[in-house]
Design a protein around this nucleic acid. Structure first.
Lengths: 137, 137
DNA sequence: GTTCGTGCAAACGGTTTGCAACAAT
DNA sequence: ATTGTTGCAAACCGTTTGCACGAAC
């Protein structure tokens, strides 16, 4: 995704693209990692060394707000960002702590009991375990 | 669960029961709330006003360590404790932020695709939505 | 007298806030 | 001129740590 595309994407969501926002968005909207705010800061600083921490937080919240980014919280209270905004599940590697996306269609959740009393808006499955070797990702 | 029972439970897990630990355990091991450390402190202080914050954290970690308590992290990075140590799912009320336990047997998760490459040790379903009125809890 | 548990206060790390400077319109 | 964006530093909050006192064996 080119810097131009990112810029129009931002504009399309009512976010005026600035140099700082581009530096943040260009990384966080494209990566398959699930970076923390700090990791985003580090990466974006490579392109824009003068970028401040507060601006990164501003931008991340803005992107989450505009629906371009998902904030998720993993065990231990770590907050992490996921540019995959379609519904999907997560696998957390217990050894590395890394989060992997699992396509929504890979699993099916069915109710054995009616679960009346709950108006369910969203279902996410979180799996934990070890990712078996062979290859990266 | 009486104070005596809690005491033997702790002993059975190699945790010498002290007044402070009893004050913490008596609440946190019995409640259906999913309290934060701070809420546990507040509640336990009602019984033992002189209880310190550090001791609560010590005790909570100890209980988690001994398998008597589960630590879980909900959206926003909030860390919360759940005395239900059997596998189960969660429903999070978007309005109140409250966490409700859903029996493990209430749902079934099946794989549409094989998901090879992942050695799955644990599956939890997190549902979000609104809890419909009628009654408390 | 050694170990373990506790309380206190300080430190910590990630996040948020307040504010002044600046840019864009 | 008003509005929106940024950088900085300070404040903040929940958690962790270091240390000294006290109790238990």
């Amino acid at each position: 995704m080119s810097e131009q595309d990112i810029a129009s994407l931002l504009r399309a969501h009512g976010v005026p693209p600035t140099a700082q926002r581009l530096a943040v968005a260009e990384y966080v909207l494209a990566t398959e990692d699930h970076p923390s705010a700090d990791e985003v800061l580090a990466r974006a600083k490579e392109r824009l060394p003068m970028l401040s921490r507060a601006t990164v937080y501003n931008t991340l919240h803005l992107l989450v707000d505009k629906g371009l980014l998902t904030e998720l919280t993993v065990a231990g209270g770590r907050i992490v960002y996921d540019c995959n905004i379609t519904p999907h599940h997560h696998f957390i590697d217990e050894q590395t702590g890394l989060v992997h996306d699992i396509p929504f269609e890979a699993l099916r959740v069915t109710k054995n009991e009616p679960l009346s009393g709950y108006d369910i808006r969203e279902i996410t499955v979180i799996m934990r375990g070890r990712k078996k070797g062979r290859g990266r990702h």
